[in-house]
């Protein structure tokens, strides 16, 4: 992405972002709530429209990109639809969609990849259960398994650790380290890295819609950029002083 700019309701959320993710990197996008982390990864994939600049996926703009199987997107949370149940296996198997052809039935390779993905997140024994009955951490595992099932080169994860219990976080870290060993690329949004910290090769810290740090993970740059440190209210300091504050009172 170069000069990436995103506006929501004409309010700029991201301003002039230049970011290139290289193959094999594990990039963590960090920042306070409301700093535009999720918007950034969504814009990288062309899911959030850019109001300026451009973004390329493997050298192509999103509209002309065809190799979507190379990307596994993990959204922030599982949307459970209008109450129609779906089993864990059905949701995970749907991760194969960009590798499937419309007129060909589900293949043995699809079933095998689905089974491997379920195994990797430790949900194989519950594959027939409805996803609606799972806890937040378990639903997160389903989402990750869905991306795993597609066997992509690049994983893009939006807050995979938010609201997830410690066991699921550790499982995510183990899964990711396996992927990193295979040379996959990972871009993840996080508020706190937790057990993921040793895996991250590069950290991009956002502040007010701009990149304020891009380089080695925050451990090296001191306590200031440490996750968990930046908990100030995102708009606390930038709020313009209104005329009532500004006028001297008697």
């Amino acid at each position: 992405m170069s000069g990436g700019q995103v506006s929501l309701d004409r309010r700029p959320v991201l301003r002039g972002i230049d970011l290139t993710v290289r193959s094999g990197e594990v990039v963590a996008v960090l920042g306070a709530n409301g700093s535009g982390k999720s918007t950034l990864v969504r814009a990288l994939l062309g899911l959030a429209p850019l109001s300026g600049g451009s973004t390329l996926l493997y050298g192509k703009p999103p509209a002309r990109f065809r190799e979507w199987w190379r990307i596994g997107y993990v959204p922030q949370r599982l949307s459970v639809g209008g109450g129609v149940p779906a089993t864990i296996r059905e949701v995970v198997a749907s991760g194969r969609i960009s590798r499937q052809s419309r007129f060909r039935p589900t293949s043995a390779a699809d079933a095998a990849a689905t089974a491997r993905a379920l195994e990797a997140v430790g949900l194989a024994d519950r594959a027939g259960d409805p996803v609606q009955a799972l806890s937040g951490g378990q639903q997160q595992r389903v989402l990750i398994a869905r991306a795993l099932a597609g066997e992509p080169d690049t994983f893009v994860m939006d807050e995979p650790t938010a609201g997830v219990d410690a066991a699921s976080q550790q499982l995510l870290a183990d899964t990711l380290s396996g992927l990193v060993e295979q040379g996959r690329t990972v871009v993840l949004v996080a508020h706190e890295l937790g057990p993921l910290e040793p895996l991250v090769t590069r950290a991009v810290v956002l502040r007010d819609g701009c990149v304020c740090h891009d380089g080695p993970p925050p451990k090296a740059v001191g306590a200031h950029a440490l996750p968990g440190h930046d908990h100030v209210h995102p708009h606390a300091e930038e709020r313009p002083a209104g005329p009532l504050d500004w006028r001297p009172t008697s």
Binding site: R42, L45, L47, P75, G81, A86, I97
Partner: peptide, 14 residues
């Protein structure tokens, strides 16, 4: 099925 589950995921799956 993918579309009705999550439109954004459907888009990210091309």
């Amino acid at each position: 099925f993918v579309l009705c589950q999550d439109e954004e995921v459907a888009r990210a799956a091309g």
